[in-house]
């Protein structure tokens, strides 16, 4: 999972957004990264994160999709699904 070139490229594209929102320029994320692993990743940051990703990628997520996210891998899957449609 998440080793595909698309997933790797997306992770690379998401990293600066995560760094920006979490205000940590050295933040490194992987598919397994969860909210608990990252300082500042609270429910408010989650909203800012989702909104920033939507803006950057030109996508829209539903409330159900947002609340189902458990880790960065889920986010990668969700983005991939949206892009396939």
């Amino acid at each position: 999972m998440h080793n595909s070139p698309e997933a790797v490229a997306m992770l690379k594209q998401l990293t600066p957004i995560f760094q920006d929102v979490m205000d940590d320029d050295d933040l490194v994320i992987s598919a397994a990264t969860k909210a608990e692993d990252v300082d500042n990743w609270d429910s408010l940051a989650q909203i800012r994160l989702v909104v920033s990703i939507e803006e950057a990628l030109g996508l829209r997520f539903s409330a159900a999709e947002i609340s189902a996210l458990q880790n960065v891998g889920d986010l990668l899957d969700l983005i991939a699904r949206k892009r396939d449609n």
Binding site: S43, L44, I47, V50, F61, A63, I66
Partner: peptide, 14 residues
């Protein structure tokens, strides 16, 4: 509408 439902944001965060 989604941002209102998810986080009770009074307007779009952008």
């Amino acid at each position: 509408l989604t941002q209102w439902n998810v986080g009770k944001l009074p307007f779009s965060l952008k």
